[in-house]
Structure formats: C-alpha cells, structure tokens
Design a protein around this nucleic acid. Structure first.
Length: 208
DNA sequence: TTCGAGATCGGCT
DNA sequence: GCCGATCTCGAAG
C-alpha cells in the first residue's frame, strides 16, 4: 500500500514523430492484467512512407487502428500462430506505429512462466511474439487505448534509460527497406533479441 | 554454436 | 494461391 503507481504515458507522448517516440519508449512498462513488461527493444514503422509497414498499401480492415488516433494498440496475427503488438504514433491518419519487440517481465513472472514454460526467464518476452504470449495479448486488444488508466492494456512511465545505453540499428525480419536503422534497444540488456538478417524462406516444393 | 526447415492461417494480389 | 514485422526444434560442425 502506498505503493506508487506510475502514470500512463500521455496522448501527447504518442502524438509526435514515430522516430522520436520509438527510442523514448525504451524503459516504459506495458501492462496487461497481472503481468508487466519493461520495454527493451522497439522498431518504428512509418505508415505510407515505409515500404515495410503494414499500412504502406493504405487502410484495410486489419490495419484500421494504425490510421486512427495515437496512443492505441495495433495487434495483428502473423505466421498462422503469433500475435504482435504496435503502438500508434504521430498525427491521426499517418499510420505510423512502434512495434514492441522485446522486454523484461518485471511483474507477474509466475503467470508469464505458465504461458511460456520453456526456457529461462530472460526469454519470457524476448521477441515480439513471445512478448504478446507472456502478456496474453491477442486481437481482442486491437484498438485498446494504452493512455487510459481504465484500459485493460496500458503503458506506464518507467525509469528513464541513460541515453548512452540506447543503441539503434537495422530492423529485423523484414525484406523491404531493411537498411533503415529504425530499431532501438537497450545496450547490454539480456532480453534484447539477437540480430538476424532477413532470410527468405524457400518453398516447400523445392525439396523433392 | 550455427543453420535450415516446419508449423499454420489470415490478408492481400 | 502466395507469403509473412516469428519461434522452435533437430542436425551438423
């Protein structure tokens, strides 16, 4: 009791250029239910200006949230089995967003272990799909307002990260515009995913 | 430790 | 139909 609960990040925080918001998100805390994750790795996607963005080809039913106001979660399903979560940034209609790639489980480690039994604790939210698994985030949370203290999914201010510990480099797992250094992480943090260059998958019919 | 392929399905062409 | 903002496991070095 008397325990200090940090405030949610403000709408104004997200209503800025995505390249400014992304590094500033490092160290803040994503909360869903009893589990909280301190963000250690993020990537920026700049809407219609970004070949690698889901919003590049314009609004669809899936990416509709990206074209809405900042401070909302865009949750999508991929590879037939994984969810990933983004936070919408910048002016409404720009469709810029930050992909949350990895973090450290700071609250609810027990609960997260139940959801991801395999591997050490540092891997619980290491990678965008693991992060959503640890937090139990799925499409039901698509569009959630992360600035609203009453929202099931929200982002709280965290301990500031020393600027010299923030590093940037190429984004991961994409084939288009892979050269842009739009990925940021906390240097030396064990929960940051290892960099692997994009490797196109070969078609199943190849072997035979 | 590194590498390669399978899993599995919704969205878009 | 094709391919993906991924993860995991098994085999080989």
């Amino acid at each position: 009791m008397g325990q200090l609960i940090p405030p949610c990040l403000s709408r104004a925080f997200f209503d800025r250029p995505v390249l400014d918001v992304a590094p500033d998100l490092l160290g803040s805390v994503l909360v869903h239910g009893d589990v909280a994750v301190r963000l250690t790795e993020v990537e920026a996607y700049d809407g219609a200006n970004d070949l690698a963005s889901h919003a590049y080809r314009g609004p669809t039913r899936r990416n509709a949230v990206m074209f809405g106001p900042p401070g909302h979660a865009y949750v999508y399903f991929t590879y037939g089995m994984h969810f990933c979560v983004n936070l919408v940034c910048g002016e409404e209609g720009r469709a810029a967003a930050v992909l949350l790639r990895a973090g450290e489980v700071v609250t609810g480690v027990e609960q997260a272990r139940v959801r991801r039994p395999a591997g050490p604790d540092r891997d619980l939210a290491r990678g965008p799909a693991r992060l959503t698994k640890a937090l139990d985030v799925d499409r039901a949370l698509d569009g959630a307002d992360v600035c609203d203290p009453g929202s099931p999914l929200r982002v709280l201010a965290g301990e500031p990260v020393a600027p010299e510990r923030v590093r940037s480099g190429p984004r991961i797992g994409i084939s288009a515009a892979a050269d842009r250094p739009w990925r940021w992480w906390i240097d030396g943090d064990p929960t940051v995913s290892a960099y692997r260059p994009h490797t196109p998958r070969r078609r199943r019919a190849d072997n035979r």
